[in-house]
């Protein structure tokens, strides 16, 4: 059974003055219709680039890409990486859509929101400008903008940040795409607005049976909406598993460290945070060995300084749970003092 989107061994790099930036390194993941995949990582982990490449939004002259990303469309699969740019363009906004972090700058300041939504609609539909505006009003209503009919002619600056993100969602969904890529969609928003937007994305996903890729740094958001998770570090996927596996039986020391280091509103008491020491790696000239090794507390647990000399493979530790670490699940359980059958 093939999933709607299957990304295989996708690598994206750009040459810079300082050297080759390996932003995304041999990344594979898949997401099916109705499913939400969260890609988690810090800035510079390479969590966005592979998706920009899938959308064809990378800079074609500056980027080197290898690997494949298959979209299993009703009329046959297509690899959006090797397909001609013009063909991929005709998929954008129709089969796959993307929304971005900053709704303040993602809308054109000179055109009304209705105009911008109608523009996306008329690319793939025959109809007058009036039909487009009517469709835009419908979409604005769908994404919960009050008195949508009166607001289609308003300009982006007349909307708040949360409302602009709704406009972006309306625009992305106007042609009923099968895949929505949301790149940090709520990072720029207030927390009460964030929960509104996440709820909206979930509802719309259910209604239209979309595949959703959510790119985020916020593990709280992941816990709220994801079905499965890829954790990225240093341009590579370090852990890939279902949501509960990631949170309750994490296999990779980076995931474990991240979960331990974040404060939680539901855990009272002034315990000291367990910080991960050091800095995230630069994506230029990554050293041999595991990218996380310099910050990993378990390096000494692996025999023969393997961590700093060899790069671990992403291997299946338990069914459907992949981790890029030399340590085995039993060792992780012992080292973290976690109960083997936690929760």
């Amino acid at each position: 059974m093939s999933k709607f989107l299957e990304v295989k061994n996708l690598s994206v790099s750009f040459p810079t003055e300082d050297g080759l930036v390996k932003a995304s390194n041999d990344v594979s993941y898949s997401v099916d219709l109705g499913e939400t995949l969260a890609i988690v990582g810090e800035s510079g982990s390479g969590k966005s680039v592979s998706n920009l490449a899938i959308m064809g939004l990378h800079n074609p002259t500056m980027t080197q890409i290898s690997g494949s990303a298959w979209l299993n469309l009703p009329d046959g699969p297509i690899d959006v990486i090797s397909a001609p740019a013009e063909k991929v363009r005709r998929l954008r906004g129709k089969v796959m859509s993307m929304i971005f972090q900053d709704p303040m700058s993602a809308l054109h300041p000179y055109y009304s929101v209705g105009n911008q939504i109608a523009e996306a609609w008329s690319l793939y539909n025959d109809g007058s400008k009036r039909d487009g505006m009517a469709r835009a009003a419908e979409m604005l209503d769908l994404v919960g903008i009050p008195s949508a009919k009166d607001r289609v002619k308003d300009f982006p600056h007349q909307f708040s940040g949360g409302m602009r993100q709704r406009v972006m969602i309306a625009m992305a969904l106007v042609n009923n795409p099968s895949l929505l890529i949301a790149d940090e969609p709520t990072t720029a928003l207030d927390v009460t607005v964030q929960s509104q937007i996440l709820k909206l994305i979930q509802e719309i996903q259910k209604e239209f049976n979309m595949a959703v890729i959510l790119i985020t740094h916020d593990l709280g958001v992941v816990a709220e909406v994801a079905d499965k998770v890829c954790v990225m570090y240093g341009g590579k996927i370090v852990e890939n598993a279902g949501i509960d596996e990631i949170f309750y039986r994490s296999q990779h020391p980076y995931t474990i460290g991240l979960l331990d280091s974040i404060p939680r509103v539901d855990k009272l008491g002034s315990h000291r945070l367990k910080a991960i020491p050091g800095q995230p790696p630069s994506l230029i000239g990554l050293p041999t060995g595991c990218a996380f090794a310099p910050r990993c507390e378990f390096v000494s647990q692996v025999a023969g300084s393997l961590c700093t000399t060899q790069n671990p493979d992403l291997s299946e530790k338990t069914t459907g749970h992949f981790s890029r670490c030399f340590l085995e699940p039993e060792q992780i359980v012992t080292l973290t003092g976690r109960k083997a059958s936690a929760k």
Partner: peptide
């Protein structure tokens, strides 16, 4: 505000009752 803060714990998240404020 508290109920809007996501908690990095999927089981808690699934059981949580959220108060979603309307409007801006």
């Amino acid at each position: 505000l508290l109920s809007a803060v996501p908690i990095p714990d999927p089981i808690i998240e699934r059981q949580r009752e959220r108060i979603i404020l309307t409007g801006d």
